[in-house]
Amino acid sequence: MPYLKRPVTATLFYGVASLLLYALLFAYADHFVAWAEQTKENKALFLIPVVVAFVFSYFHGAFTGHFWETLGLRAAKSSAKATTKPGGNPVTTSPAQQDHPSSNRPLAQS
């Protein structure tokens, strides 16, 4: 989705997605509570909070990242750090790489 590389569009997309997820969570809050209470009888239900947490972290994590970026809060360009393997060449995260549009992709994919 190339249009999501633009910070404002990405912020709006992930913001709406995140808002929808929270709306669904609270619209069906009684169900989530009931599933938690039934976990002792049906152990497979333990997966629900785990999956919910992963899904929310993907969409809300991407939203909050783009949100601050849209407001101008970005990492310092000189934050590149080198890591070296024995006998290998230094691997560096260059400022150019950090500013590359692909760095706008959702955090859960980075």
Binding site: F32, A36, T39, K40, K43, F46, A53, F56, T64, F67
Partner: peptide, 24 residues
């Protein structure tokens, strides 16, 4: 979660705020 004591509503409210904070 296996004991059924995770309140996902509370966890996700805290997560909503903490993900804004962790980026900063």
């Amino acid at each position: 979660a296996l004991d059924g004591v995770v309140d996902i509503r509370l966890a996700m409210i805290i997560l909503a705020g903490s993900l804004f904070g962790i980026q900063i």
